[in-house]
């Protein structure tokens, strides 16, 4: 080594004005890609879980002796997976050529639209899942000498509608209505649980970028 490290350093930075600080507004490319990639990855995981469950459910339900309910749940899951797949494909249509801020803002808008649509869909989807669950429980209870039979023996005067306990029908109806009414809240809770972290990251990144927009074109 000819020169000392001090000399190399000094000569290398002889003219500090040649050091160019990056422009702040252009700096979020990588970060925004990370956030969106993470979101896509989570959507994909969700999709795979739904597909796996749609295969497992009929098998599991078959062994419980309630194959039809298993098939219904599987069908519903497949429909949900198909819809999620379509939504995921639509994120690719967003303009990636725009600035990071514009891109992330359009992702945020896309997300809001998707969630709004989903909130409408889950109003019917959740009650359906609930009905399948109730029907599964009822079918397993209603076997010879099962729970339903025991209850019938214990309370022989309970009202039956078409061989179904009135009380069970009321519970089912109230539950279904409850699912319909609270579907939005349940969906939001569900989302927070699964995607809360990445949604917060998206929001905070956009907020940071908005904050930095004030420093535009300063760093040259």
């Amino acid at each position: 080594m000819k020169n000392s490290i001090e000399a190399i350093w000094k000569e290398g930075f002889l003219n500090e004005s040649t050091l160019v600080a990056p422009r702040i507004n252009d700096l979020y490319n990588q970060k925004s890609m990370h956030v969106v990639d993470r979101m896509k990855r989570m959507f994909r995981i969700n999709l795979v879980v739904m597909l796996v469950m749609s295969v497992i459910f009929p098998v599991m339900y078959y062994f419980l002796g309630v194959l039809w309910q298993g098939l219904a749940a599987s069908l519903l899951l497949l429909a949900t997976a198909w819809y999620t797949r379509r939504q995921m494909a639509s994120i690719g249509t967003l303009d990636q050529g725009a600035t990071s801020f514009d891109y992330l803002s359009s992702v945020d808008r896309w997300l809001k639209e998707v969630l709004l649509k989903n909130e409408k869909i889950v109003r019917f989807l959740y009650p359906l899942y609930f009905l399948i669950a109730i029907s599964t429980i009822w079918s397993t209870f209603n076997r010879p000498r099962g729970v339903a039979w025991s209850l019938q023996q214990k309370y022989p005067h309970s009202i039956l509608v078409d061989n179904l306990s009135m009380l069970a029908l009321i519970v089912g109806a109230v539950g279904t209505l409850g699912m319909f009414y609270f579907s939005r809240k349940i969906y939001r809770f569900d989302l927070r649980l699964m995607f809360g972290g990445v949604f917060r990251k998206l929001k905070s990144t956009i907020a940071e970028m908005e904050e930095l927009r004030g420093a535009n074109s300063l760093t040259r």
Partner: peptide, 16 residues
């Protein structure tokens, strides 16, 4: 260059 810009960005933001 990408990492460098990202780090510089983050430094400015954290200082602020």
């Amino acid at each position: 260059q990408e990492d460098f810009e990202d780090y510089y960005q983050e430094v400015c933001l954290q200082v602020y």
